[in-house]
Amino acid sequence: MSEGAHLRHTEAGQPDASHTAILYLEDLNVSFDGFKAINNLTLYIDKGELRCIIGPNGAGKTTMMDIITGKTRPDSGQAWFGQTVDLLKLSEPEIANAGIGRKFQKPTVFESHSVAENLELAMHGNKSVWYSLRARLSGEQQALIDETLQTIGLTDHYHQAAGALSHGQKQWLEIGMLLVQKPYLLLVDEPVAGMTHQEMERTAELLTSLAGKHSVVVVEHDMDFVRSIAHQVTVLHQGSVLAEGTMDEVQNDQRVIEVYLGE
């Protein structure tokens, strides 16, 4: 329903993050058939921050990202992007164009398109129908594609169909799609699943380099990886925040230990 009514918001420009936080989630609740997946969740992400979110399976991490990106509507609560963008009133594409990019837990790329075309499609810019009909890659955009392919190590796969990539390469491609989208806020769901140790290190490097200019939220199960990048860690459990702090603080928190050991 929100589709038509909020078209005006679409090219939102820079989110108004004049206050330190860029993402506000307050008192969110979601239930699926009576099961509370998100339970009074309140969470703030600062501008330029790199935040890791951990939590056991089914804690609601992916569902939280679904709410932020408009895939799932909460039963109650607030979700704001900066001071002015009410995420709960926008559709998925509007949220994407407002500057929130997402990498999915299960890597999803456009399988029948080439690697380069995947980046072309994800690239920031005018996304309207008539514009797309006449759009051609500018030199600048071509350069961005080449540069991104370099970053994600897929230069040699320029023309290859994305469906033919390995699991790890698809992860990289999806990260590349996120990069060319140039979002202010990146939501990264389990980026290193299926990656080798070396690739994990490169991902860690990449994500840390993005923080500062962008805000990055990373959901990850791999504790070594989290430790290597995290400043602030949030632990989700049964749909709400269980603990927040540095990795050491969180790991020594009695309740967190119980949740992880109690499994």
Partner: peptide
């Protein structure tokens, strides 16, 4: 055209296309 590539993207992964910012319904 690029529109054609978007159209095929919608065919193959409709919801993903939304998350990169295309208004699928318009297309």
């Amino acid at each position: 055209s690029k529109l054609g590539r978007i159209v095929v993207a919608i065919r193959d992964a409709e919801s993903r296309t939304r998350f990169v910012g295309y208004r699928v319904e318009h297309y």
